[in-house]
Design a protein around this nucleic acid. Structure first.
Lengths: 358, 358
DNA sequence: TCTTGTGATGAGACCGGTCTCAAATCGATT
DNA sequence: AATCGATTTGAGACCGGTCTCATCACAAGA
């Protein structure tokens, strides 16, 4: 007849009393610090076991100042890109005995601010953030704990950052398209623009978005394509409205003959829209997307993708952050991970004649 | 020249001193409890703003006993099923000002135990768990805070539970297959069995797995199919090994003519394996899977699926848990959400002759 | 035998909040 | 003017740990 599984919590003092030692001594063995004699150590451990002592991590954090958890703010865990990155983060964190408090920003700055405030109030030891909008980063500046940026760099914010070689990736992908003969190439992204875009790509301050556009434009320019800016479509979300916009684009007389999508979610939407319009890939239109999402290899045709090391992205960000948590204070690092293009069957030569229904 | 963004933290006492009131009074306005006069309230708020006071949630939790966060333990956030459910959970949590600490169990009991221990030490107010293995639930019994089970019920554990009508879903899906004329139908699941399975489905104690198998067997029996148990494949994970096993199954002389997959991850694996074997869907083999993952609608052919309300699953679990957190103590509820079958193109009549390479 | 040093232990302050309880203040009533 | 009740405020304990510092015991060295 054991009754250890009592109802409420057993504290250090309880254990101390049971073991007939002082609270300080009990705390020493329970907390694993200081020096304690063999005998006493055994006695306390036994008392702790008998009572079913469970340390209160909160109280511990209270005095040590460290909470043993990091906050992660991503746009949307539902997006496979983020869930994979989060997986990378939490795997690394677990190895260091750190846990992850997750927050979704829904890609909205206000939600992001609020999430950060909450996380900070919870005394997270560090933060990994995928900044929703690069225009508004005052709140990121004010963060006083270690911070790492995931997937999106902010030039004005000199902190540990892990991104992929977006520009080069976009450049190569676009070049593949131009070399296949395409001249009307669209870049479709979910990002929304703060301020307006008049081709001044360098004014975009979310690195991921800017770099990709820069790469895209560079490849277009190299191929002698003018006004490629016109074919950049922002704000393509999962909504009805934006799907409608895609359909509209695909049905217009001068619809693009090739599209580069910024992530697998918009690509999927695009894929569906293309099919809805009765267009064939790659016959009527070529499609390339960022992120080797699981579905891209099983469609007909399978989609050519820019494979980003997403898990590694999360992993590296977490490693950088944790290293800093451990006291490392070398200057911020900006890691750029390489991407590879996986060529599948979604890129072909454009048809010469504009051509609507198949 | 403002210098509020000081380095270290401003406490209630600091604010009190600045506002020339007692710590107790300052705490009252800062914490939003008790009664304070207009004047003092204003003075304290102002002092707080001037100093840039940020409450320490940890210290608050310390005294109140509530941490304002819940722990969520899922098998694998990378699985779209879980990431969507987590999304549901965190949306609901945010609405209540509660945040989510996430932990992956990797479907392993030991990892689950450890995660729970950590979460509990962090004083989470409640827990939402997708139990990895139903055989080993002693550690779940010992949990003293509110607990809700997600997607998997445990008969012996009388706590709030949200599942889908797995049995009926499996029954209907299997019946669809038998009605199409199939006799050799396999059920492929990622679940691993604790103990061995000799057709005694009722001995499986993870509800999801058991119920689906029961439904599957019932439909088989109704169609006069004997020994359907033989065609249940457990432990199909993302590994090389299990992919090999699938290939082996598909290449055997008496390969199934139809397969029901337990989730979209195994289904995708299966889809690829089927293609690798040069088999056609649904000509050579029919495929139905649980979970309407995004890719299932864009393959050729699109896959018939059992659509589970995954987001709602997470949402409901969180609602149940939070309701309990708020003091509601009615007896545990077991919510069973309905599923619908989305018929697409992956089910057809079986070929009469066993037939290997197309 | 009398230092002196070393390791083990205990007492109690502290972290930053909440909250109880008593004292002080105030207006109104008699 | 004195009393009473209600409201506002302050002092200090408390949550469950960590950690500093003083004390204590014991053994080696002088």
């Amino acid at each position: 007849m054991k009754r250890p599984p009592k109802n409420s919590s057993i504290t250090v003092s309880d254990v101390a009393r049971e073991a007939k030692v002082s609270k300080a001594t009990a705390a020493r063995v329970l907390g694993g610090y200081g020096r304690v004699s063999q005998t006493v150590h055994a006695a306390v451990s036994e008392a702790a076991k008998a009572l079913g002592y469970r340390p209160n991590e909160l109280a511990r954090s209270m005095t040590t100042g460290r909470s043993g958890s990091i906050g992660v703010v991503v746009g949307d865990i539902e997006n496979p890109f983020f869930s994979l990155a989060v997986r990378g983060i939490s795997d690394v964190a677990r190895l260091s005995g750190i846990n992850v408090i997750l927050a979704n920003s829904g890609e909205e700055v206000e939600a992001e601010k609020s999430a950060i405030r909450v996380l900070l109030a919870k005394q997270v030891d560090g933060l990994i953030i995928t900044p929703a909008q690069a225009g508004d980063i005052a709140h990121l500046r004010e963060i006083s704990c270690p911070l790492a940026l995931l997937d999106r760099a902010l030039p004005e914010l000199d902190v540990d950052t892990v991104t992929v070689d977006d520009r080069n990736a976009a450049l190569r992908a676009t070049r593949m398209l131009t070399q296949a003969g395409h001249r009307r190439i669209a870049y479709v992204t979910a990002a929304v623009l703060s301020g307006d875009f008049r081709g001044a790509a360098s004014s975009i301050n979310t690195s991921t978005v800017r770099e990709r556009i820069l790469g895209f434009l560079e490849a277009c320019r190299a191929a002698g394509i003018e006004n490629a800016e016109r074919n950049i479509h922002f704000g393509s979300s999962r909504s009805e409205r934006s799907h409608g916009l895609l359909l509209q684009m695909l049905r217009s007389a001068d619809r693009p003959t090739a599209i580069l999508a910024s992530d697998s979610v918009v690509a999927l939407d695009l894929f569906k829209a293309i099919r809805e319009c009765g267009l064939g890939i790659p016959r009527d239109i070529s499609l390339v997307t960022f992120h080797d999402a699981d579905w891209t290899s099983v469609t007909t045709p399978p989609i050519t993708v820019i494979d980003q090391p997403v898990y590694a992205l999360g992993k590296s960000a977490a490693e950088l952050l944790i290293r800093r948590l451990k006291g490392d204070d070398r200057s911020p690092e900006r890691i750029v991970l390489p991407t590879t293009i996986i060529e599948r069957m979604s890129v072909g030569a454009p048809l010469n004649l504009p051509h609507h229904q198949s």
